[in-house]
């Protein structure tokens, strides 16, 4: 197993998807108002890819694109993170934050996370922690994953949804695998508008 995920593979897969994905052509005026969903649960603390402790309270006030994966993931994670990365490029920094939580903390060290996430976007935050810490956060977001032994190595199975949290930390939407970056951009803008409309009513 390579120490780094093959970046050539990433490039070629991302390229293929860029060329073939049709994009979502109409901009969607947002009329419907989201009803309030229960918040995702307690806040959490993990370790960021720069080694600092990361309190989820830091995210308050921003829309969050949250994704669970692992750096040795051959296809799903790079594709999804490249979409998230491109969405982040298209949106103002003070509006949105991207989070990548590894579900493979034994391999995904802080150093490894740092080189991995910044490949997709300089501001994308990679998070790791102890097995227990990660399991707990995953449970909060209804994520299940498991280790699959593969000869002398292993891989991880995990869902590929992108969660969108509003500025209060409540899950607002779940984008299944394959959502384009254009769609993620509209999703963030729409949820920001919803939140602004709701707080405006208070």
């Amino acid at each position: 197993m390579n120490a780094r995920p093959g970046s050539r593979l990433i490039h070629c897969l991302v390229g293929a998807l860029l060329l073939t994905s049709p994009g979502l052509l109409l901009s969607a005026p947002v009329n419907a108002k989201a009803e309030s969903l229960p918040s995702a649960g307690d806040s959490f603390t993990l370790t960021a890819h720069d080694g600092s402790r990361f309190e989820s309270d830091r995210l308050k006030g921003k829309i969050v694109l949250l994704y669970f994966g692992f750096t040795s993931c051959p296809d799903v994670c790079p594709l999804e993170l490249s979409n998230i990365g491109r969405a982040l490029h298209a949106l103002p920094d003070d509006q949105v934050t991207g989070l990548f939580v590894t579900i493979d903390p034994s391999r995904d060290t802080v150093e490894r996370l740092a080189s991995y996430v910044t490949f997709f976007h300089p501001d994308l935050i990679g998070l790791t922690g102890t097995e227990e810490e990660i399991r707990e956060v995953a449970n909060q977001y209804n994520i299940s994953y498991r280790r699959i032994e593969q000869g002398t190595s292993y891989t991880m199975e995990h869902p590929a949804n992108v969660y969108v949290l509003d500025p209060e930390g409540t899950i607002r939407a779940m984008a299944p695998f394959g959502s384009t970056s254009e769609h993620l951009v509209r999703l963030v803008r729409g949820i920001a508008a919803d939140s602004a409309a709701m707080s405006g009513q208070d």
Partner: peptide
């Protein structure tokens, strides 16, 4: 239904049609 609604909510922004 709440979880399914998170998907539905996502697609509210994927174009109104």
């Amino acid at each position: 239904p709440e979880v399914m609604k998170l998907y539905g909510n996502n697609f509210r922004f994927a174009g109104t049609r």
